[in-house]
Simulated assay, not measured.
Amino acid sequence: MIALLGIRRIGKTSVLKVLANEVDGVYLDMRGLVKRDDMYMRVADAMSSNIAKMKKLPRG
């Protein structure tokens, strides 16, 4: 998990999206989350919509 912090409008989201594509990762936008269950649902949705990428990940 990576958290990238910085001032507004310097390209944080763009950098993370490029990184996610380069390493077959998944980008999750966690803004607006109120409850822990909302976070779980967002993670589950991202995983299911990116299942092809996740199959390429090494197993440990």
Rank of each mutant, 00 (worst) to 15 (best):
A3T: 15
V18H: 08
K55I: 05
D37V: 05
A46I: 03
V43W: 02
L28E: 05
M41Y: 03
G60R: 15
M39F: 15
S14Y: 09
M54F: 10
Y40T: 05
D24R: 09
E22Y: 12
R42C: 07
Y40L: 13
K17R: 14
D24W: 02
S49R: 15
K56D: 07
L16R: 01
V18G: 01
I51K: 14
R31M: 10
T13V: 03
R59I: 05
G6I: 05
G60Q: 06
A44S: 11
A44W: 08
G6W: 04
M47G: 13
R59D: 12
A44H: 10
K35H: 11
K17I: 08
N50L: 03
M39D: 00
M1R: 07
V34E: 12
Y40P: 00
M30V: 15
M47A: 11
G25R: 03
K53S: 08
R42F: 01
K56T: 13
D45V: 02
A46M: 04
K56P: 01
I7T: 12
L5Y: 11
L28M: 13
L19H: 10
N50Q: 08
D29N: 15
L4I: 09
M39P: 00
L57K: 12
A52Q: 13
G32F: 06
S48P: 00
L5G: 04
L19W: 11
A52I: 04
L33C: 14
I51Q: 14
L16A: 12
N21W: 00
Y27W: 08
R31D: 15
L28A: 10
A52Y: 05
Y40Q: 13
N50K: 04
L33W: 01
R9D: 15
I2T: 14
K35G: 01
M39E: 08
G11D: 10
A3G: 14
R42P: 00
M47E: 01
Y27A: 01
K17Y: 01
Y40I: 10
M39Y: 07
G32Q: 06
G11L: 02
N50T: 09
I7P: 11
K53W: 02
K55C: 01
K17V: 04
M47N: 00
R31V: 09
M54P: 04
M30F: 15
L4C: 12
A46S: 14
M30L: 15
